[in-house]
Amino acid sequence: MAEEKKGSEIVAEVRDVKKTYLLGRKDVFALRGVSLSIRKGEVVALAGTSGSGKSTLLNLLGCLDEPSEGMVQVFGVATAGASDQALSQMRADRIGFIFQNFNLIPVLTALENVEYALIDRSMGARERTESAKQALARVGLGDRTDHRPDELSGGQRQRVAIARAIVHKPSLIIADEPTAALDKQTAGEILDLLQAIRREMDVTVIMASHDPLVLSKVDRVVHLSDGKVQDDAGRGAK
């Protein structure tokens, strides 16, 4: 059933995408014509060495940046030329983000960090708090709701970040090196959690990583090198 779904709907698509940055007076090519489709329910890893363009591609798929050339469509919407408001709305409604360094707001508790992702939702404060508590319980932090990020371990912080990413029930989760700041055991736990969430919520997950552990646990690995897709394997090498 899941396999059928995966083939049925394209969540994100890039076609002939190029991305250049201006470094001083010089153009630096981060992506040199990348084409890719990601289907609903897939767990995809963008792999490659530092500077290969995986984070740049991830940012484009997360509607955080626009391509210099080519087309990026997320949920059928072309991101190039879309208004800031429309992209913000899409990120708020349909995308969840997990960052390498967790990126939690240090002055807010775990519960408030998660709740903050729901701030624009048309729901009452009590309902918002309840949703945030449920999300924290789902990641195993139901007893840490009142702790601030500096009172939590790295793994716990990443769990709070995952709770924040899933609290609004997104269709797509973008994770940038989600295990890079964690030890091997915790990284494994986080990846298992992400897999479990993917199954429960039928969500698409795109990760940028060069961690072999990550690559071994995803459905598909897209290898990037020098701004190009070098290999688009259907399964991670286990």
Binding site: R91, A92, I95, N103, A117
Partner: peptide, 16 residues
């Protein structure tokens, strides 16, 4: 700055 980026990434608009 990093926090501003995070807030924007999770859907907060510039004006927010």
């Amino acid at each position: 700055t990093g926090e501003i980026g995070t807030l924007r990434a999770i859907g907060r608009r510039r004006e927010d």
